[in-house]
Simulated scan of single mutants.
Amino acid sequence: LQIRAGSVAAPLHHPARIAEDWSVVDNLSGGRSGISFASGWHPDDFVLARTDYADRRADTLRIIEQVRAHWRGEAVSHPTTAGGTAAVRTGPRPVRPDLPVWLTSAGHGQTFAAAGRAGYGVMTALLGQTLPVLRENIAGYRAAWREAGHAGDGDVVVMVHAHVSDRPDLEDYLRPAMHGYLRAYRSQTAASGEDEAVLLESAYLNFLQGPSLLGTPDKAAGVLGLLREAGADEVGFLVDFGLPTDDVLAALPALFACIPAERAR
């Protein structure tokens, strides 16, 4: 089992700190770490940043390369607060020689293409894109990957909310947790209002009836097939959206049983 971050918001952290923290994880896990980097999306989060919010995408690509250089043991120059620069090496040294990297995308085709050109994987979700758009974005990623001359086809991970069960009251059972999850998301993107309950229920039903892994085994197997047809290499199961831990763990066998044997890993 690999241990991956999904995601580190690169502009909110110093690249040397990212490299050192994840080198510790790599050592503790015997060389099983990997990172998906995000550019950040909420302006208020950038009170922690050393760069401007408007420059976050370009800064993320720069920081990724700095982290990778630190990971390889190279000395990397960073600005000091006294106006100069200092060459920095990080420690401890990681176990794996190269850091596996993904770029997190909410569904923007430019991000997929940038990841392809740089030779990174992509981690994405269906929260900000439809299946047809996902298919187009993955095709654009593969094209950029090939044009840049990278070997292979890259790697696309799609994160999907997951809880597979045949229980007859599943819709009512999942509703409080998903409403809470969606309410927290909405609170960061829009002001609450009198129509909030209606919007939350509509969004919840879209999740339940749409391309998520919330529902019966047959539905989940069908959605996994659609994701495979869209070009996804891996699926990330989002199971931590508010259900009790014991219930999450008890439902995992039904989820794993939906994965075709030749694809399970």
Rank of each mutant, 00 (worst) to 15 (best):
G6Q: 15
A10L: 10
P11S: 11
L12W: 02
H13F: 15
I18D: 02
D26P: 01
N27Q: 15
S29A: 15
S29R: 03
G30D: 07
S33F: 01
S33T: 12
S33D: 03
G34I: 06
F37G: 01
A38V: 04
D45C: 06
L48K: 12
D52F: 11
D52S: 14
D55H: 14
R62L: 10
E65A: 15
W71G: 10
T80H: 10
T81Y: 07
A82K: 06
A86F: 05
T90Q: 07
R96K: 05
L103T: 01
L103Y: 03
S105R: 13
A106M: 13
G116Q: 12
M123D: 02
N137C: 08
G140V: 04
Y141F: 10
A143I: 06
A143V: 11
W145K: 02
V157T: 09
M159T: 07
V164P: 02
D166T: 14
D166A: 10
E171P: 02
Y173H: 15
L174T: 06
A177G: 05
M178H: 05
L182G: 04
L182F: 01
S187C: 00
A190F: 03
S212K: 09
L213E: 03
L214H: 03
A220R: 03
A220V: 09
L224N: 01
G225I: 00
G225A: 14
G242M: 09
L243N: 04
L243P: 03
D246E: 15
I259W: 11
A261F: 03
A264Q: 07
